[in-house]
Simulated assay, not measured.
Amino acid sequence: MNKIILASLTALLAVPFCAHAEQILNDANHQQTITVKPKEIFIVKLPANPSTGYMWQFKPPEDGTVKLVGNWKHTPSKKNTPGAGGETTWRLVAGQSGETSLQFFYRRPWEDASVEPAEVREYKIVINSTSSAASTPASAVKPWF
């Protein structure tokens, strides 16, 4: 009986600390339409290797449909090898209902804009308040690094 009560109390105490799993956009869902709710946080993770001089460039939409939370972050590969790649991550939050397109360009920052990027990733984002996607509470929208 005591074990059941202890297990129940442990489960109840753990609930407030459970985090909502944020949607992660990456190469696998590139060129797909992603549906989110207003104020929902989602993440974009793309493979990158800054030692080559290339880095991902992203500019949030000017209409405010999606905003960057904090700054982008590069995480090196777990391989402790010189020149090993890693991934660049952006944490974004959806604004009010609407649609937008997010574009990421893999290029050398010193090159002229007329030079074609080595890679492009694009995601169509639909912000829909009636979506079945779970949303992150507005109070949780804080920079993460």
Score class of each variant (00 low, 15 high):
Ala11Pro: 01
Met55Arg: 15
Ala118Glu: 08
Thr65Pro: 13
Gly53Lys: 14
Tyr54Pro: 13
Pro76Glu: 00
Pro143Gly: 11
Leu25Met: 13
Trp56Glu: 03
Lys142Thr: 01
Lys142Glu: 06
His74Arg: 08
Met1Ser: 14
Tyr54Ala: 11
Glu116Lys: 01
Leu92Trp: 01
Lys79Trp: 10
Pro16His: 10
Ile125Cys: 10
Glu87Pro: 02
Val44Gln: 12
Lys3Asp: 09
Lys59Leu: 11
Tyr54Cys: 11
Pro76Met: 02
His30Gln: 15
Lys79Cys: 01
Gly53Val: 08
Val15Thr: 05
Tyr123Cys: 06
Asn29Glu: 07
Ala7Gln: 03
Leu68Ser: 02
Arg107Ala: 12
Thr81Val: 09
Lys73Ala: 06
Ala138Asp: 14
Ser132Cys: 07
Arg107Pro: 04
Ala84Val: 00
Val66Ile: 13
Ser114Cys: 03
Pro82Tyr: 12
Phe17Pro: 05
Gly85Met: 11
Ala84Gly: 10
Ala140Cys: 12
Pro117His: 03
Leu12Ala: 09
Glu62Ala: 14
Lys3Asn: 08
Pro76Ala: 03
Gln96Arg: 09
Lys67Asn: 10
Gln31Asp: 11
Leu92Tyr: 05
Phe104Gln: 12
Phe17Asn: 06
Met1Lys: 13
Lys45Phe: 03
Lys67His: 08
Ala7Tyr: 00
Trp90Met: 09
Phe58Trp: 14
Thr35His: 08
Ala48Val: 10
Gly95Ala: 03
Lys78His: 05
Lys45Tyr: 05
Gln96Thr: 02
Ala84His: 07
Ala7Trp: 04
Val36Glu: 11
Gly64His: 15
